[in-house]
Design a protein around this nucleic acid. Structure first.
Lengths: 142, 142
DNA sequence: TAAGATGTAATATAATATATGACATAGGAG
DNA sequence: CTCCTATGTCATATATTATATTACATCTTA
């Protein structure tokens, strides 16, 4: 399994909004060209980031605005905004045999540890924020 | 994204081998029935667990043997054995624009943190082992 | 040598990820 | 108030992955 590219695309998108936002109008078309994907992909991610209260999007003349400083946007915020399909990190096989002493109890025996692992992963994600990504890009262009 | 069911299937499999192995011959057919999946799925996972040096499989009369005590098999061992398609946890969008100051540097600006997150996740996985899963199943059947 | 189990190939299906064109609609700019 | 531009959204297409299944060759022990 892999985290989908929507995650890195969203981070790229947010860094680009911060980088270009003060000088020019940032559109989905422009972002799509910087990221290297179709504008519709960008628009869909924009919608997800809006729902997560991370950005504000104005229609008409267009314009994307960050609702928080990058230092307050964590990788977990972006991950949750974008990976909305399933809230369980681990997929469990669905038909363990209830007649079997192992099959009957495997779910209960595992769930606690799987949930703990998911919490750990989320905690790891929340310990990173977008400020350092942006800074690193600014640094590289100096 | 989600970790595939192969992960929980492999854990179920190993717990069942320990649980039943001393009293009876454990075959892929039997395991498939306990787990609730096709025997070929089980055999393929058996092959991956063999390659990872976790079990020994004898042909002919059949028979699966654990090569280590469950306490020495971590979730990371199982995860690595079974999730072999990609060794990167995060998939990166492939065509950031090299003409763009952000696109040109996003990879470098992110890679360090993504690798750190992967290491954290692997460390989390390695802090769990199969002994407690087995114990919990034994306990439930007492 | 026969039987039983694994190793493996071929194939089918469903779900997911990603890409793309088309167009209705909202909302500033003039 | 009208026009233009960019977003919101739909429909569809394609590739990849996950899972399921049948069939059979092959190995090993009894």
């Amino acid at each position: 399994m892999q985290v989908s590219t929507k995650f890195t695309i969203a981070i790229h998108l947010l860094a680009a909004v911060k980088y270009f936002g003060k000088d020019m109008k940032v559109t989905s078309q422009f972002l799509a060209s910087s990221i290297g994907v179709n504008p519709v992909i960008v628009r869909n991610i924009m919608i997800q980031l809006q729902k997560a209260d991370i950005i504000d999007v104005k229609r008409g003349p267009g314009g994307i605005v960050l609702k928080k400083p990058l230092s307050e946007i964590t990788f977990l915020d972006v991950y949750n905004a974008v990976e909305t399909n399933n809230d369980d990190l681990f997929r469990f096989h669905e038909n363990p045999n209830p007649q079997c002493p192992v099959g009957r109890n495997i779910h209960h025996a595992l769930d606690g540890q799987l949930n703990a692992l998911q919490s750990d992963f989320e905690k790891d994600l929340s310990s990173h924020n977008l400020e350092s990504v942006y800074e690193s890009i600014v640094e590289a262009n100096r």
